[in-house]
Design a protein around this nucleic acid. Structure first.
Lengths: 196, 196, 196, 196
DNA sequence: GATGAATGAGGGTTCATTCAT
DNA sequence: TATGAATGAACCCTCATTCAT
């Protein structure tokens, strides 16, 4: 294995450790020393791969978003019609709620930091805009743009609510109900029926 | 004899300072020194009124909940029929979103701490159960219990989503849209029309 | 009761509280706030009766010595012959070991502070000199002064050892053995037999 | 690679500084900041080597015991017969009294903390049991076990008294007399004569 | 006499970061 | 590349003491 790849491997290990630590102890409860310890590395090494604690956190947030997106795009891949895309987006999010309990808690930790961190805000804005765009374009095929915009916002709001609920009360029952609630919501909003 | 009644005055000042600081800088970014400084008091005084930082934070969380509840019960007071009560609950929450930007951000900061703090978890559980109970009993008058339970959950989820959105993107436009979105949601779910 | 006596009553309450607190938690673990709390008085009142924490501690040390002396002189009162006086002194000390466990622990706490406190050192010097004088004069009746001086020192050393042992291992068995050990020691040194 | 072996060097420096500070100012009067300052190090460094103040104090107590034991075993090494071993033990302790004045004061400081610290209590128990065992086994060769047990206790008590005296009144004269007193005591108890 | 509010220094500890090796 | 030694600021908290009332 070439030395070149080491950098990426190390970075991934550090980000992985950070993510799980944040999930367990929150953003404030996670120190650089803990990260390096859990990664099996030395104290000072983190600064060779990340200029800052902030840089590490940013990379961790990106990784978290990547995981969530992976779930969503996994469902999107098999969907073609606009209404299928909307369902897939929702299904993907519900599926993402079933990621490690720690990942969901970390998601909330990062969101709570957004008002204090322009950096995180920027990242979350991109995510939010992408979600809205996806929903809007799918909905706009079958309704006027104003309505599509509102419904896209409503779906995003409802999904955010599901995330919050899952993070704060991460019991299997609560998370398990999310899909049912989501489809009930979609049914009311768009006339979709629960699949399967 | 020392100044009497200082206890309540000082406690309020300290909680107020804490609340605004958390709103500005997050829970982790708020130190006891900052709290006492903003209150115009000395470093050690906080421990004269609160045994702990935790005790101060708990009092602050209770104050925040009190403010939100004040908004909600303000609307509930004028409502009598079950469907009016549901609308009033939603209106009250939407109205609470218009509290100081800092208050809404503080709300999110506390929620994010819930997974790490059994203390906060307990308090938030009480709040959540009370909301659910209110919604459920109002809805159960006009539908079967199972449906009432699901719809109550859906309303709670949607409202949580609105709060999250308001905290993370506290622009007047975003917050201003909340009421419209909420009514659109209620209309779809229960057939309510937007008032005024 | 005249107001004049209040001063003495309050002082005694404070000293009493201090003594028991030191016995329970050590000198370093005892704060002025604890003393006033246990005395059922307010925070600042202590400084009306004692200029200083040091003054309070000094009074407490004197009270402790007074209690110990009370035990010793209680035994001395009934003794007339020189050898009876030596026995009475030892008996009095052994009897003092049976004071409250807290008193004995406090005794050690004060001794440990002696190297750091000229004030305590002075007080303890007086106590030591008085003990030595008592033993020396009793012994000098039946032996030459050099021998009397040595034997007086030896008795004092042995008794200090018993105190230390009682303070560090304050079980009834350990303390109970002290009298037997003391008489065995006196028997070897002076030919005294255990009474009773 | 960082300087290797620093761990042991720094730990020794810190323990050394702690020991002398405790000797000078007592346990309560010794702060972490003083320890690091006297070691010529920064404020936070102590926690790189010791998890806790407690851990540092424990290490310091062990070091102190090690020094005392070194004196004792130095004398024990040259002794073979049981009665020689008893004399060596006493001589070793007397010799240890001549350690730095600070060491002897620190010894008392630790003993005074025993009632408040199960940790120190455990360590001192081990020391006490070892001393008793040594004395008992040596004495039991020439007398019945009950007598041996009592005499071992008496020797231990007397030696503790000598330590206390040396700590509280650390003048050369007082300490210098200790050997003479100890031999007088042994002579009375066991018929030993002062060597040289 | 008596209260408890208020101060400010100092306590132990944590932590992101730097740097010699 | 990698280590862990080292720093110094900041954290929460405790405390003897002062003082207006």
């Amino acid at each position: 294995m070439p030395k070149v790849g080491m950098q990426e491997i190390r970075k991934k290990q550090l980000v992985e450790a950070t993510l799980s630590l944040i999930g367990e102890q929150g953003l404030a409860g996670t120190s650089m020393a803990q990260v390096s310890a859990r990664s099996g590395m030395s104290n000072g090494i983190v600064h060779h791969y990340f200029s800052d604690k902030n840089a590490l956190l940013e990379a961790t947030l990106r990784e978290l978003n990547k995981r969530i997106n992976a779930e969503i795009f996994n469902h999107l891949r098999q969907s073609t019609t606009p209404s299928e895309r909307v369902q897939a987006f929702v299904e993907g999010n519900v599926s993402a709620l079933n990621l490690t309990r720690e990942n969901v808690a970390a998601w909330l930790a990062f969101w709570a930091q957004v008002p204090q961190s322009p950096q995180f805000q920027r990242i979350q804005n991109i995510v939010a805009r992408r979600s809205h765009s996806l929903l809007f374009h799918a909905l706009a095929k079958s309704m006027d743009k104003t309505t599509a915009r509102y419904k896209a916002q409503m779906i995003a709001v409802f999904i955010d609510g599901l995330w919050l609920r899952a993070a704060v009360d991460p019991t299997p029952e609560t998370i398990g109900e999310s899909r049912r609630l989501a489809y009930e919501f979609l049914n009311n909003l768009l006339g979709f029926e629960l699949k399967v």
